[in-house]
Amino acid sequence: MSRRDFSERDIHMALDGELPGDERTAYEAWLEANAEMKAKSARYAADRAALRAAFNGVLDEPVPVRLSKVVQGEAPVVRAAPSRSRWWLAAAAAAILVIGGAGGYLAGIGRLGLENTAEDQLAEEAIAAHVIYAAEKRHAVEVPASDKDHLQSWLSNQVGLKLVAPDLAAQGFQLVGGRLLPAGQGKAAMLLYEDDKGERISLFVTAESAAKAKGTYGSEEDGPAAVYWLDKGYGCAVVGSLPRERLAAVAKSAYGQLLAGLQS
């Protein structure tokens, strides 16, 4: 057995199970003979027990659906809540109080991860419009479907795109009508559709876009989701609270017809 001098470092190693087995007996003897070190070891052991007790409950919590979904999800481009990716802002917010002389830091925080991407903005505006107007019984649209020709020419002129309201009858949706909305620095057209059960979806089309992107965006578990496309010169989002597959099918049909209309 090796005889050596022990030190405080060995307290940590013993506590963490890193002390070689053949040194254990000698270490215990050293600890017994050294009241101060023994007390220290006992305090560290108690702190560790308290730490484990404080966090062990997390293991028994049900795994949040949003986390298991990330792993199980089939679609790679599903975006979660806008607050996602900002976990460390909480750390930053805490750190701001911990850090002295933080003036320069405060100036920088606005840029930290808070930039909204073009597709986030499009999807968020489209969802916001849907939440407000799809719930309206009498004032959901400005121009009703009965005046479809006027609706199309009016929105086309305002938005600056040649808009043709897609025919979604094959997916079970009839046009209710449309309205003009602000979007970013410009304007957007919103077209509202309804199926025979009263379920509503909306199309949100804007001429403002420089980016190219597509994906799905849903902010909450049961809230409406948006399927969106951005291309040079236009952006489109289809919003609804449908099952993802059905929404995707509706969106695909709408997109094909919109694109054909734009290029006609």
Binding site: L51, F55, N56, V58, L59, E61, V63, P64, R66, L67, S68, V70, V71, Q72, A80, S83, R84, S85, R86, W87, W88, L89, A90, A91
Partner: peptide, 30 residues
């Protein structure tokens, strides 16, 4: 990976404390 989520959440919670922020970190990780 699914089986490791509870452990990841515990580690994240000890690093960040706030539950939502910790889960956001886990989500980024996943």
């Amino acid at each position: 990976i699914l089986g490791e989520i509870p452990r990841l959440r515990r580690y994240a919670r000890s690093l960040l404390r706030d539950r939502d922020s910790a889960d956001d970190l886990v989500q980024d990780c996943l």
